[in-house]
Write a protein that binds this DNA or RNA. Sequence first.
DNA 1: GTCAACGGCATTGTCGACAATCCCGTCGCC
DNA 2: GGCGACGGGATTGTCGACAATGCCGTTGAC
Lengths: 223, 223
Amino acid sequence: MADAARDDAALPLPAAIAAALEEDIVFGRLHPRERLIEEELAERFRATRHTVRQALAELERMRLIERIPHRGALVKAYSPEEVRQLYALREMLETQAAALIPLPLAGDALAPLHALQQQHAAAVAEGDTRAVFRADLAFHRALYAHCGNLFLAETIEELGQRAQVIRYANLRSQASMEWARDEHAAMLGALRAGDRAALLALCVAHFRPAREAYLGQHPTLLA
Amino acid sequence: MADAARDDAALPLPAAIAAALEEDIVFGRLHPRERLIEEELAERFRATRHTVRQALAELERMRLIERIPHRGALVKAYSPEEVRQLYALREMLETQAAALIPLPLAGDALAPLHALQQQHAAAVAEGDTRAVFRADLAFHRALYAHCGNLFLAETIEELGQRAQVIRYANLRSQASMEWARDEHAAMLGALRAGDRAALLALCVAHFRPAREAYLGQHPTLLA
DNA sequence: GTCAACGGCATTGTCGACAATCCCGTCGCC
DNA sequence: GGCGACGGGATTGTCGACAATGCCGTTGAC
């Protein structure tokens, strides 16, 4: 079990608890199938059980946990086949979205993306994995927001959330974080240059490795 | 405001309330922007406010309503531009899914679909719009379940739910219900014959009209 | 006459306590 | 010795009451 609540004060309490648990799941401090007990969490976060309950509902909405009536909440586990299907859909959507981004991207549209990329790079440099995680999410959201279709962008984000355990398993290796950083930079270059083919290739190449690594590491996870 | 709770007993109470409200929204008994007041609903469904709250959370998850903290729940409204984007994504996903269904579909895979189509046809014959609505949902879910990608099927269903107000605005016209029925039959034919081109054409043609009708009818709905 | 501050009312959000459910070890019967 | 019924303990679900919030009409000052 992980350490106590991080002070993400300022955001509503249930959201803060959900965020903390989300990180616990992403960073493997809570493993698939592990049970989440409301009262324990309430104590850990010094909140009422009611508040914890709301946080669990939020995590269920994000599909990071599964709740079985009268039985409680489990960290969700994906079978290799599910991972393959999830990634197939993500690839299809992200490819489509990348194809829809107007190119070249105007300078004032590029600036915020660039700022996010810098944030990500800084977090990588400091080895602050939590910040890397958040910055990476923000970068990808901002990137696909430019596809011009609100629903497509939302769907991509939701599926990305579901895949978090897989996507961010590599946050333990400095090398792969640096890889991601450099690919982000390359994407910005393609956006600026208006090089559609390069952008598409980068988007696909960007998330394939995580899938492979996960499937290699959990070869026969039954579920 | 609509009439009292329908006896969808047997399913958990919050789900039953959510289903009833869902139908109210789909059939236009609750219009976009209309406010949902917890206590009124509690009285109407003879449930506690707590139960109603859960139902609202469920409807929010389905994106049929919007909840603003301390201000309550509103039936969600879509601007014409949002409708266009939503439909663009739906078209893309349903086309892809239809392209992935293995053809021709084996007989024992066809049978359940056929049964659902019959249910739909029966409901159309009786003019039971509620049943038509439910049967149509079931038919499409079963159809796209055959695409072989769980997540794609789920995503299609979720986006379909979000589009319900648009999709089912035509349930007030007997003619369009009969149209839908005939198209379902044609889809089954294409599945059986293994005619991919026909299947794709049907899937696209099947939901375009609802979009046009909605956009025509709500020409400048601000939002 | 206009505008800002106040206060009452409708509504939503949270709490603590209690009820319902399920898992699992124990007992008794065959 | 195996197996089903029973029951205790842990855990989740629900309730009624109370607190917090925001809207809106009213008031009063300038």
